[in-house]
C-alpha cells in the first residue's frame, strides 16, 4: 500500500473549546489510485489532506506513506524533507511565486532536491509542455490566466515525480471551461504516469473522474463509489 491511514484523530483546541475534526479515520490507497473526497464545508477535508502531507500534526492513529510512518520523523526538518521528496501539492489558490517566471516556479521542487540547474530546467520545460504551457514558460504569474496558473501549479506538483499528489480544491477558482480542461489534463497525466492522486473537491465533475470517491462526514470517510 502506498498510503495507510489508521484510526487517525485530530482535534483543534482553542482554549477551553475542543473541535474534533477527524475521528478515528481509517483509509488506504494503492499506487496508481485516483481518489476524490467530497464533503460539506468544514467537514475536515483540508485538515485530512494537510495531515497526510505532514503540514499539520495529528493526535492519535498513524499515517504510513511508502512504508514509513510519519511518526518516525522526529523533527520538523525531517518532515520538510519528506514533503520535498514524496509529496506534490496543488492548492486551491494555485499559488505561484510572483517574482519568478512560470518555468522557475516549476523548477523549484527540483532545485530543492539539488538537481543541477540545467537538468532541472530541462525537466521543468518538459513538464510545462505536458500541461500545455511551454510557450508561456518565461511569463510571470501575473501575466498568465487563472487556468494557466493552475496548470502551472500542477506542473510544479508533478515535476519531481512525487509518490503521492495531494490536491485541495484544485479547480476552486476556475470557470467551467477551464475546469473541464484541467480535469482532462489531470486524468491524462494520471493515466500516463500512473500517478497516485488524492483530490479534495466540491465539484461533481472532478470528483467523478476519480476511480474511487469518498464523502467525508462526521470525521470519517464514506465510500460513495469505486
Amino acid at each position: 500500500m502506498l498510503l495507510v491511514v489508521k484510526n487517525l484523530s485530530k482535534t483543534y483546541r482553542e482554549g477551553e473549546t475542543e473541535l474534533p475534526v477527524i475521528k478515528s479515520l481509517s483509509f488506504s490507497m494503492a499506487k496508481g489510485d485516483f481518489v476524490s473526497i467530497r464533503g460539506a464545508s468544514g467537514a475536515g477535508k483540508s485538515t485530512f489532506l494537510n495531515l497526510i502531507g505532514a503540514l499539520d500534526s495529528f493526535d492519535e492513529g498513524d499515517i504510513i506513506i511508502d512504508g514509513i510512518s510519519l511518526k518516525n520523523y522526529a523533527h520538523k526538518e525531517e518532515l520538510t524533507l519528506f514533503r520535498r521528496d514524496k509529496i506534490g501539492f496543488v492548492f486551491q489558490n494555485h499559488y505561484l511565486m510572483a517574482e519568478f517566471t512560470v518555468l522557475e516556479n516549476v523548477m523549484f521542487p527540483l532545485l530543492l532536491q539539488k538537481v543541477p540547474r540545467r537538468q532541472a530546467r530541462e525537466r521543468a520545460e518538459l513538464m510545462l509542455e505536458r500541461v500545455g504551457l511551454k510557450d508561456r514558460r518565461n511569463h510571470y504569474p501575473s501575466q498568465i490566466s487563472g487556468g494557466e496558473s493552475q496548470r502551472a501549479a500542477v506542473a510544479r506538483a508533478l515535476v519531481h515525480k512525487p509518490v503521492l499528489v495531494l490536491a485541495d480544491e484544485p479547480t476552486g477558482n476556475l470557470d467551467a471551461t477551464n475546469r473541464k480542461k484541467f480535469i482532462e489534463l489531470l486524468q491524462n497525466l494520471q493515466l500516463q504516469e500512473n500517478l497516485s492522486i488524492l483530490v479534495v473537491t466540491h465539484e461533481e465533475d472532478l470528483a467523478r473522474c476519480a476511480k474511487r470517491q469518498y464523502l467525508m462526514v462526521d470525521g470519517k470517510l464514506e465510500l460513495l463509489s469505486g
Partner: peptide
Amino acid sequence: RRDIGILKAIGMSN
C-alpha cells in the same frame, strides 16, 4: 508570506 508557505510545503528547510 505565501511564498514562505509554499516553499516550506514543497520542502525548503527553515
